[in-house]
Amino acid sequence: MGTNGIAIDVRQLHKWFRNNHVLRGVDLKIPAGTATAIVGGSGAGKSVLLKHMVGLLSPDSGSIYIFNQEMPSKYSRRLEEIRRRFAMVFQGSALLNSLNVGENVGLGLVEQGRLSREEIDQVVREKLALVGLKGKESELPGELSGGMRKRVAIARALAMDPEIILFDEPTTGLDPIMAQNIDSLIADLRDRLRKTVVIVTHDMDSAFEIADLICMIYEGKIVEQGSPEAFCRSTNPIVEQFISRFKRHNGERGQGD
């Protein structure tokens, strides 16, 4: 295909918000069909980077290639086409509060207008069952817990049958059991459906559990990337500090056994 198996290729990406230089030359290649975790402290620019990948924000300099196609900086038909290959699960779920769960999940398909009502209902049922929310179609987002909202958001993303799914902090603010469930759901997407998955997180547990590649963003740059094992052995002081808590915690657990 000539894409060298690279789904998303970010080159020298810079982004300013007024005087705030958030991204300072990000270089990142995300392999297709794998799960990549982007980790970093809060305010590091993880969400901003993720939004550039779907064209919700446009670079001040640098460029982004999706399967070797350059992401247009202005709204256009080509941008629409590229976006169709993506789905994104937002940090706060971003469900439409005026629509019920079923309508939220089917929203993209209804507005696309290609499938019939019955076919859409079928997809909605299927995706809700996949995230463990069978029969919750008629509930309103306001009545759901944070974990359920997140799962509805995942179902909504899956309904569009994307090639690449971006998760912005999918496990933040969830209880450990729910976080575990979501982690295994994401791992499933990669293993069974062969999707390319990008997860932004500061939950090192889930990064080590699901990611094939872990990248750390610090002061607007990718300062370290590698497999979970390599990442763990990194001698970069910033990385060491970032994962020290996780290591200590796991080390203690190891000793107890």
Partner: peptide, 21 residues
């Protein structure tokens, strides 16, 4: 409210144009 809770962004990623919708 939709803007600050990223619902507008969510519409865009679902290929829904917010001006139309």
């Amino acid at each position: 409210t939709m803007s600050v809770s990223e619902e507008i962004d969510a519409l865009k990623t679902l290929s829904i144009n917010p001006v139309r919708y």
